[in-house]
Design a protein around this nucleic acid. Structure first.
Length: 485
DNA sequence: TCCGTTAAACATA
DNA sequence: TATGTTTAACGGA
């Protein structure tokens, strides 16, 4: 079986090793390995590795799959690989897998690779539609340190069982099948049959979209919250982080964001809780097109179709339309929310951030809540609730771009595309301090003065909801070190 | 008990 | 079929 040679490195430290190329792998001998191997598909031996060399934990050495994957990714020039490439790397670089290259995807080891990729937060998936291939897998610089994501699952089984149950498709199905035939009807999913914003759900555009799916809701490192996680009832926010791959040199996919946002139910009937949608557009810095149109701009224009509430809005259907209609430079950010109450009174929507007066709305680290104190619903056209509550921030997980700026050469310029905030009636109860908005700059005063006050004569109350957003509001967009170069 | 591996069900493109 | 996600069983530390 695998010789000692296979022991890649007992002390293997993914990050510590010179990453210029695939890490040094010794070539063991070909045969025998399968015997040692544990992959079911091809080599059966359940008992993987006879802990031969003393310390070897697996047939291939002491590295875990996660370590191997990390190595693979790290060894690639772009620091990103597709699943197939990871397989390839394994086969090429790890002796043990050398003869397993032709196995099909059902091979146990491949299954394990996939499993690990999905399981660990240290790996992030970047949507790669341009190539028409599978997603890119990258290392999450900040995430998952060594390992597993603090994903809710483990911790949650206890307290989040509900969520997991609801969320899991598999579980859903199983439950449906086993439990009651009609169970499906009531399934929570009915509300969110699918997440429209999901990259996979969308197909057009050759733009590459990097979607980060955070596996940890509470983990600061999380970049985005996957929709499904939001419990059907609890869900408060849908946020997603979308990276447009510059490779296509196409501007960030606004449309996608729109779709994403569109999927939100801005006007929640129940009302107390409003859903928030946020999307971020980060500009990947691909060497190829670092030119990005967004450069440093913190935000990129976004249109938020509100049609979902169809009858409520008579005006332009999308903010984008509104904004673009008379604007020049896109507004940096828009936050909109319909005041439940007002909406009932027949109020129309609010719209902020329009460039109408070049108002630039940005949130600065601190969440703001902008509420109309005196509203003349009758006369006033709209009310606005602008807010980035901690709550929302909590939900909006933004990458914590560490000091990335210096670490990685090509810094990605991230731009927050839009943020739709909500519920002010329910203040953050259990906030995750780690969560915070990034790079938000909000010139509320300006907006109020220029856009709202002037025209409407509204009197707003600005209440900082969460003082210490703790978010380093550097103007520089969040630089995500993990963004591919 | 936690972590990693393996297996498998299921979904989606 | 490949890719992804998720759940679960197992075994080792």
């Amino acid at each position: 079986m695998a010789e000692a040679a296979v022991d890649l490195d007992p002390d293997f430290e993914p990050q510590s090793r010179p990453r210029s190329c695939t890490w040094p792998l010794q070539r063991p001998e070909p045969d025998g390995q399968e015997a040692a191997g544990g992959s079911q598909a091809e080599g059966p031996a359940p008992a993987p590795a006879p802990k031969k060399g003393g310390s070897r934990r697996n047939a291939w050495g002491n590295q875990s799959y996660a370590d191997l994957i990390s190595q693979a990714i790290d060894s690639s020039p772009d620091k990103r690989l597709t699943l197939a490439q990871i397989y390839e790397w394994m086969v090429k670089s790890v002796p043990y897998f050398k003869d397993k290259g032709d196995s099909n995807s059902s091979a146990g080891w491949k299954n394990s690779i996939r499993h690990n990729l999905s399981l660990h937060s240290k790996f992030i998936k970047v949507h790669n539609e341009a190539t028409g291939k599978s997603s890119w897998w990258m290392l999450n610089p900040e995430g998952g340190k060594s390992g597993k994501a603090p994903r809710r699952r483990a911790a949650s089984m206890d307290n989040t069982s509900k969520v997991s149950k609801v969320r899991g498709k598999a579980s859903k199905k199983k439950a449906a099948l086993q439990a009651a035939p009609d169970a499906s009807a009531d399934s929570p999913d009915s509300q969110f049959p699918k997440w429209p914003g999901s990259p996979s759900a969308r197909s057009n555009e050759e733009t590459d979209v990097w979607s980060f799916r955070p596996r940890t809701s509470s983990d600061a490192s999380t970049i985005s919250v996957r929709p499904e996680e939001e419990d059907e009832q609890d869900e408060e926010i849908h946020s997603s982080l979308v990276y447009s791959n510059s490779s296509s040199s196409v501007p960030p996919t606004v449309t996608e964001e729109l779709e994403l946002i569109d999927s939100l139910n801005l006007l929640s009937p129940a009302s107390s809780m409003q859903s928030v949608a946020s999307s971020f557009s980060l500009q990947p810095q691909s060497a190829s097109s670092r030119t990005s149109s967004f450069g440093n701009s913190l935000f990129n224009p976004v249109a938020i179709p509100l049609q979902s509430s169809s009858n409520r809005f008579t005006g332009p259907q999308t903010l984008e339309a509104l904004l673009t209609s008379d604007s020049t430079p896109p507004s940096d950010v828009m936050m909109t929310q319909v005041d439940p109450i007002l909406t009932q009174t027949g109020n129309r929507m609010l719209l902020l951030g329009g460039q109408a007066s070049q108002s630039k709305l940005s949130l600065l680290g601190k969440p703001l809540e902008l509420q109309p104190t005196s509203i003349g619903t009758g006369t006033l056209p709209s009310t606005v609730t602008l807010l980035a509550s901690s709550q929302s921030t909590a939900a909006l997980t933004t990458p914590k771009a560490p000091a990335a700026a210096s670490s990685q050469p090509p810094l990605p310029s991230a731009s927050m595309a839009s943020f739709v905030g909500m519920s002010y009636d329910r203040l953050p109860t259990d906030l995750d301090v780690d969560m915070y908005m990034e790079n938000l700059e909000c010139d509320v005063d300006y907006i109020i003065n220029s856009d709202l006050m002037d025209e409407e004569g509204l009197d707003f109350n600005l209440d900082p909801v969460m003082p210490s957003a703790s978010y380093p509001g550097t103007t520089q967009a969040s630089t995500h070190s993990w963004v591919p170069s």
